[in-house]
Amino acid sequence: MALSKEQIAQRIAQELEDGYYVNLGIGIPTLVANYVPEGIEVILQSENGMLGMGQFPEKGKADADLINAGKQTVTILPGGSFFDSAASFGMIRGGHVDLTVLGAFEVTDQGDIASWKIPGKMVKGMGGAMDLVASAKNIIVAMQHTSKDGQSKLLKECTLPLTGVKCVKKIVTDLAVIEITDEGFVLLERAPGVSVEEIKAATEGRLVVKGEVPEMAFS
Protein backbone atom coordinates (compact mmCIF):
# COMPACT_ATOMS: atom_id res chain seq x y z
CA MET A 1 0.00 0.00 0.00
CA ALA A 2 1.29 3.39 -0.92
CA LEU A 3 1.77 5.69 2.07
CA SER A 4 -0.65 8.47 2.92
CA LYS A 5 0.71 12.01 3.28
CA GLU A 6 0.59 11.58 7.04
CA GLN A 7 2.62 8.37 6.81
CA ILE A 8 5.24 10.09 4.63
CA ALA A 9 5.53 12.74 7.33
CA GLN A 10 5.67 10.07 10.02
CA ARG A 11 8.52 8.27 8.25
CA ILE A 12 10.47 11.51 7.82
CA ALA A 13 10.02 12.26 11.52
CA GLN A 14 12.06 9.13 12.23
CA GLU A 15 15.06 10.94 10.74
CA LEU A 16 14.93 13.65 13.43
CA GLU A 17 17.60 13.69 16.10
CA ASP A 18 17.60 15.31 19.50
CA GLY A 19 18.78 18.92 19.35
CA TYR A 20 18.14 19.38 15.64
CA TYR A 21 17.20 22.78 14.26
CA VAL A 22 14.75 21.99 11.46
CA ASN A 23 13.11 23.97 8.66
CA LEU A 24 9.88 22.45 7.40
CA GLY A 25 8.43 23.52 4.06
CA ILE A 26 4.79 23.96 3.20
CA GLY A 27 2.55 20.91 2.61
CA ILE A 28 3.57 17.39 3.70
CA PRO A 29 6.76 18.73 5.40
CA THR A 30 4.65 20.79 7.82
CA LEU A 31 2.96 17.55 9.00
CA VAL A 32 6.34 16.21 10.19
CA ALA A 33 5.96 18.39 13.31
CA ASN A 34 3.03 16.19 14.38
CA TYR A 35 5.20 13.06 14.58
CA VAL A 36 8.33 14.11 16.47
CA PRO A 37 9.36 10.95 18.35
CA GLU A 38 8.97 10.98 22.11
CA GLY A 39 12.06 11.98 24.07
CA ILE A 40 13.44 14.05 21.20
CA GLU A 41 13.52 17.82 21.20
CA VAL A 42 13.76 19.61 17.87
CA ILE A 43 13.50 23.35 17.30
CA LEU A 44 11.57 24.52 14.28
CA GLN A 45 12.88 27.44 12.24
CA SER A 46 10.42 29.52 10.28
CA GLU A 47 12.17 31.44 7.51
CA ASN A 48 10.14 34.61 8.07
CA GLY A 49 12.05 35.06 11.31
CA MET A 50 11.42 32.68 14.19
CA LEU A 51 13.06 29.84 16.07
CA GLY A 52 10.97 27.73 18.40
CA MET A 53 7.79 27.74 16.37
CA GLY A 54 4.89 26.22 18.29
CA GLN A 55 1.46 25.00 17.29
CA PHE A 56 -1.49 27.04 16.06
CA PRO A 57 -2.90 29.49 18.63
CA GLU A 58 -5.93 28.76 20.77
CA LYS A 59 -9.23 30.00 19.46
CA GLY A 60 -9.37 33.78 19.55
CA LYS A 61 -5.62 34.16 20.20
CA ALA A 62 -4.45 34.51 16.57
CA ASP A 63 -2.07 37.47 16.16
CA ALA A 64 -1.39 39.08 12.77
CA ASP A 65 2.21 39.75 13.86
CA LEU A 66 2.94 36.08 14.57
CA ILE A 67 2.81 33.91 11.47
CA ASN A 68 4.81 31.13 9.82
CA ALA A 69 6.28 31.00 6.31
CA GLY A 70 2.94 29.73 5.00
CA LYS A 71 1.29 32.88 6.42
CA GLN A 72 -0.63 30.83 9.00
CA THR A 73 -0.99 32.16 12.52
CA VAL A 74 1.23 30.24 14.97
CA THR A 75 2.70 30.51 18.47
CA ILE A 76 6.23 30.58 19.87
CA LEU A 77 7.57 28.09 22.42
CA PRO A 78 9.63 28.90 25.53
CA GLY A 79 13.26 29.43 24.44
CA GLY A 80 12.24 30.70 21.01
CA SER A 81 13.38 33.91 19.36
CA PHE A 82 12.47 36.37 16.63
CA PHE A 83 14.78 37.96 14.05
CA ASP A 84 14.72 39.65 10.67
CA SER A 85 14.68 37.94 7.25
CA ALA A 86 18.36 38.57 6.55
CA ALA A 87 19.39 36.96 9.85
CA SER A 88 16.99 34.10 9.14
CA PHE A 89 18.59 33.30 5.81
CA GLY A 90 22.01 33.86 7.36
CA MET A 91 21.19 30.89 9.59
CA ILE A 92 20.13 28.88 6.57
CA ARG A 93 23.00 29.91 4.29
CA GLY A 94 25.54 29.58 7.09
CA GLY A 95 24.67 25.92 7.58
CA HIS A 96 23.27 26.34 11.10
CA VAL A 97 20.01 24.57 10.27
CA ASP A 98 20.50 20.80 10.68
CA LEU A 99 17.69 19.54 8.47
CA THR A 100 15.46 20.96 5.77
CA VAL A 101 12.34 19.09 4.64
CA LEU A 102 10.59 20.31 1.54
CA GLY A 103 8.32 19.19 -1.25
CA ALA A 104 9.17 18.83 -4.94
CA PHE A 105 7.62 18.32 -8.37
CA GLU A 106 10.63 16.38 -9.65
CA VAL A 107 13.98 15.10 -8.36
CA THR A 108 16.83 13.55 -10.36
CA ASP A 109 19.23 10.72 -9.54
CA GLN A 110 21.94 13.42 -9.34
CA GLY A 111 20.08 15.26 -6.57
CA ASP A 112 18.71 18.07 -8.75
CA ILE A 113 15.30 19.40 -7.71
CA ALA A 114 12.45 21.24 -9.45
CA SER A 115 9.84 22.62 -7.08
CA TRP A 116 8.84 26.19 -7.87
CA LYS A 117 7.59 26.82 -11.36
CA ILE A 118 5.39 25.19 -13.97
CA PRO A 119 5.79 27.06 -17.27
CA GLY A 120 2.52 28.03 -18.89
CA LYS A 121 0.84 28.13 -15.50
CA MET A 122 1.13 30.91 -12.97
CA VAL A 123 4.60 31.64 -11.66
CA LYS A 124 4.29 32.39 -7.99
CA GLY A 125 7.99 32.64 -7.19
CA MET A 126 10.61 30.54 -5.45
CA GLY A 127 10.26 32.13 -2.02
CA GLY A 128 13.03 30.69 0.14
CA ALA A 129 13.30 27.32 -1.63
CA MET A 130 16.43 28.15 -3.67
CA ASP A 131 18.25 29.50 -0.61
CA LEU A 132 17.30 26.41 1.40
CA VAL A 133 18.33 23.78 -1.15
CA ALA A 134 21.60 25.53 -1.98
CA SER A 135 22.79 25.71 1.61
CA ALA A 136 21.14 23.08 3.81
CA LYS A 137 23.52 20.45 5.20
CA ASN A 138 20.85 17.82 4.96
CA ILE A 139 17.77 17.93 2.73
CA ILE A 140 14.94 15.43 2.72
CA VAL A 141 12.35 15.74 -0.01
CA ALA A 142 8.78 14.64 0.73
CA MET A 143 6.88 13.85 -2.47
CA GLN A 144 4.65 11.51 -4.40
CA HIS A 145 6.63 8.96 -6.40
CA THR A 146 4.51 9.46 -9.52
CA SER A 147 2.11 12.05 -10.88
CA LYS A 148 -1.65 11.47 -10.86
CA ASP A 149 -1.43 9.98 -14.35
CA GLY A 150 1.35 7.62 -13.33
CA GLN A 151 4.40 9.49 -14.70
CA SER A 152 7.55 9.08 -12.60
CA LYS A 153 8.73 12.14 -10.68
CA LEU A 154 12.10 10.52 -9.90
CA LEU A 155 13.91 11.26 -13.13
CA LYS A 156 17.21 11.30 -15.01
CA GLU A 157 16.73 14.99 -15.84
CA CYS A 158 14.17 17.47 -14.56
CA THR A 159 11.64 18.63 -17.16
CA LEU A 160 10.62 21.67 -15.06
CA PRO A 161 12.74 24.71 -14.13
CA LEU A 162 15.28 23.84 -11.45
CA THR A 163 15.29 25.03 -7.85
CA GLY A 164 18.81 23.71 -7.22
CA VAL A 165 21.38 21.23 -8.51
CA LYS A 166 23.04 18.24 -6.81
CA CYS A 167 21.59 19.07 -3.42
CA VAL A 168 18.96 16.48 -2.43
CA LYS A 169 20.31 13.69 -0.21
CA LYS A 170 17.22 11.73 0.68
CA ILE A 171 13.66 11.29 -0.61
CA VAL A 172 10.66 9.84 1.15
CA THR A 173 7.83 9.10 -1.25
CA ASP A 174 4.56 7.24 -0.90
CA LEU A 175 6.41 4.14 -2.17
CA ALA A 176 9.97 4.27 -0.87
CA VAL A 177 12.82 5.77 1.12
CA ILE A 178 15.66 6.59 -1.23
CA GLU A 179 19.15 7.94 -0.69
CA ILE A 180 20.90 9.81 -3.49
CA THR A 181 24.55 8.88 -3.92
CA ASP A 182 27.03 8.98 -6.82
CA GLU A 183 25.44 5.72 -7.99
CA GLY A 184 21.94 7.23 -8.26
CA PHE A 185 18.72 6.53 -6.35
CA VAL A 186 19.69 3.92 -3.75
CA LEU A 187 16.59 2.12 -2.51
CA LEU A 188 16.71 1.94 1.31
CA GLU A 189 13.17 0.97 2.28
CA ARG A 190 9.86 0.01 0.69
CA ALA A 191 6.39 1.11 1.78
CA PRO A 192 4.60 -1.82 3.48
CA GLY A 193 3.33 -4.23 0.81
CA VAL A 194 5.03 -2.42 -2.10
CA SER A 195 7.46 -4.57 -4.11
CA VAL A 196 10.89 -3.61 -5.44
CA GLU A 197 9.49 -4.25 -8.93
CA GLU A 198 6.70 -1.71 -8.40
CA ILE A 199 9.22 0.89 -7.23
CA LYS A 200 11.47 0.14 -10.21
CA ALA A 201 8.55 0.61 -12.57
CA ALA A 202 7.70 3.95 -10.96
CA THR A 203 11.27 5.29 -11.10
CA GLU A 204 12.62 6.70 -14.36
CA GLY A 205 16.04 7.65 -12.99
CA ARG A 206 18.78 5.15 -12.14
CA LEU A 207 17.55 2.99 -9.24
CA VAL A 208 20.12 0.98 -7.30
CA VAL A 209 18.91 -2.05 -5.35
CA LYS A 210 21.36 -3.71 -2.97
CA GLY A 211 20.30 -7.02 -1.42
CA GLU A 212 17.09 -7.35 0.54
CA VAL A 213 15.22 -4.06 0.83
CA PRO A 214 13.34 -3.87 4.14
CA GLU A 215 9.82 -2.52 4.59
CA MET A 216 9.39 0.77 6.44
CA ALA A 217 8.55 0.27 10.08
CA PHE A 218 5.90 2.37 11.79
CA SER A 219 5.44 2.24 15.53
Binding site: A86, A129, A134, G164, V165
Partner: peptide, 28 residues
Protein backbone atom coordinates in the same frame (compact mmCIF):
# COMPACT_ATOMS: atom_id res chain seq x y z
CA UNK B 1 15.37 33.93 -3.88
CA UNK B 2 14.13 35.20 -0.54
CA UNK B 3 17.41 35.07 1.35
CA UNK B 4 19.25 36.72 -1.53
CA UNK B 5 16.60 39.46 -1.59
CA UNK B 6 17.03 40.14 2.15
CA UNK B 7 20.81 40.14 1.85
CA UNK B 8 20.78 42.45 -1.18
CA UNK B 9 18.84 45.00 0.89
CA UNK B 10 21.20 44.59 3.82
CA UNK B 11 24.23 44.97 1.53
CA UNK B 12 22.69 48.09 -0.01
CA UNK B 13 22.39 49.65 3.42
CA UNK B 14 25.86 48.57 4.50
CA UNK B 15 27.80 49.85 1.50
CA UNK B 16 28.63 46.42 0.10
CA UNK B 17 28.06 46.68 -3.67
CA UNK B 18 27.92 42.93 -4.36
CA UNK B 19 28.50 39.54 -2.75
CA UNK B 20 28.48 35.82 -3.59
CA UNK B 21 25.77 33.34 -2.58
CA UNK B 22 25.09 29.74 -3.59
CA UNK B 23 21.30 30.17 -3.97
CA UNK B 24 20.10 29.91 -7.55
CA UNK B 25 23.24 28.36 -9.04
CA UNK B 26 22.29 26.13 -11.96
CA UNK B 27 18.81 27.69 -12.21
CA UNK B 28 17.31 30.48 -14.32
Amino acid sequence: PQGTLAERCLAGGAGIPAFFVPAGYGTE
